[in-house]
């Protein structure tokens, strides 16, 4: 096999204890956010939501290895990595509440709006990396994809472009074992996803996606390599989503509940990093309890911000369709205003 095994290559880690604690804090916050989001959907206060519980190490480990100037092209499950990279939690809530403001990363935070069509964002990551290279900038791009997404044509085209052009891009795959209901065995005939990278002349790395430290180190390695102009990397982070594909899905229809339970009890990424920092003597149960309480406050504040938003501005339907509105859109906007008003203020 042409891909390298992260566990074999890395001894120890590139991270300091302090950094591990910071990652751990993010993972706890992301998990608490995720659980609250599911509950908000259940009580009808946000729309359909794609939960990520179980994948916190893959996302936080990845996000923590990147630099501020880097570009992210996320799927709909990348709340964790997006928040680590600077998208406010309230923005994420707004997206799942159907608000257009939820697609807007703050100025200076290079996170593209979530892509719903599978793997279509990977060529964008390739293009953004290409632009960075042409401009001589130090930024890299990361395109996110799941195991199912590797079957899409856009995955192939993006990997091929990245290899041919030797671009500073990372294609980061969270292999959580299922594309909604379809298991990996029905998705691909290859044993791993990482080995696919060889077909494109791209280095493939398979990493334990439940080990935040290992994920971080793999992404940091790939990012450093990209910044040195040594080309793209495909990373397969082997992980698991504890819950359903989205709140509109029921995973008990297609998955053995014992399987999810096994991952939760034996391979939980938060338990794992917590054990590591406890063992290092840099974390305590008291601190842990305080962290969960703090996470609850942070998430609660964000929910309140979402709920305090003024009604949506109706003009947002029109105002960003073109740089300058053509005549027919101006007229339709006027008609909209006369029938429905402007909605909330900008």
């Amino acid at each position: 096999m042409n891909h390298t095994d992260q566990q074999e290559r890395a001894e120890g880690t590139m991270l300091t204890g302090e950094q591990m604690i910071e990652m751990y804090k993010w993972m706890v916050t992301v998990r608490h956010f995720d659980r609250r989001a599911v509950n908000l959907q259940r009580s009808g206060r946000i729309g359909t939501y794609a939960a990520l519980e179980g994948q916190e190490a893959a996302q936080v480990g990845c996000g923590y290895a990147l630099e501020k100037q880097d570009w992210l092209f996320p799927t709909y499950r990348e709340h964790g990595v997006s928040m680590v990279h600077g998208v406010p939690m309230t923005t994420v809530f707004l997206y799942w509440n159907g608000r257009p403001e939820g697609c807007m990363a703050p100025e200076g935070v290079n996170v593209f709006p979530i892509s719903v069509p599978i793997a279509t964002q990977l060529p964008h990551a390739v293009g953004a990396a290409w632009a960075s290279k042409l401009k001589g900038e130090n930024s890299i791009a990361v395109g996110f994809v799941g195991d199912g997404g590797t079957s899409e044509g856009d995955f192939h085209e993006a990997m091929n472009f990245a290899g041919v052009m030797k671009l500073p891009v990372i294609i980061f795959c969270q292999n959580n074992g299922y594309a909604i209901s379809v298991p990996l065995s029905k998705q691909t005939a290859t044993e791993t996803l990482a080995e696919k990278a060889a077909a494109y002349g791209v280095e493939g790395i398979r990493v334990d996606g439940q080990d935040a430290v290992a994920v971080h180190d793999a992404v940091k390695y790939a990012a450093d390599k990209a910044r040195r102009g040594e080309g793209p990397t495909f990373i397969e982070a082997v992980t698991y989503r504890y819950g359903s594909h989205t709140t509109a899905d029921d995973h008990t229809r297609y998955r053995d509940v014992n399987e999810a339970e096994m991952w939760r009890t034996e391979r939980d990424p938060i338990d794992r990093l917590k054990a590591r920092i406890l063992e290092l003597g840099i974390w305590s149960e008291e601190q842990d309890q305080a962290l969960w309480e703090e996470a609850d406050k942070v998430v609660q504040k964000s929910i309140e911000e979402m709920q305090a938003m003024p009604p949506v501005d109706h003009n947002r339907i029109f105002d960003y369709s073109y740089a300058e509105l053509p005549w027919h859109l101006k007229e339709q906007r006027e008609e909209m205003r006369s029938l429905y008003g402007n909605g909330g203020a900008k």
């Binding site: 570009w71 092209f73 593209f112 279509t120 990977l122 060529p123 964008h124 990551a125 390739v126 293009g127 953004a128 990396a129 290409w130 632009a131 960075s132 042409l134 401009k135 791009a141 044509g153 856009d154 085209e157 993006a158 091929n160 472009f161 041919v164």
Partner: peptide
């Protein structure tokens, strides 16, 4: 000269345009 991939050409152009180029 790009690989023979129309979705890839347009998709990569999206990323380039978003990151400041005029493809």
């Amino acid at each position: 000269d790009t690989p023979l991939a129309e979705a890839g050409i347009i998709g990569a152009s999206v990323g380039m345009a978003v990151n400041g180029m005029r493809p």
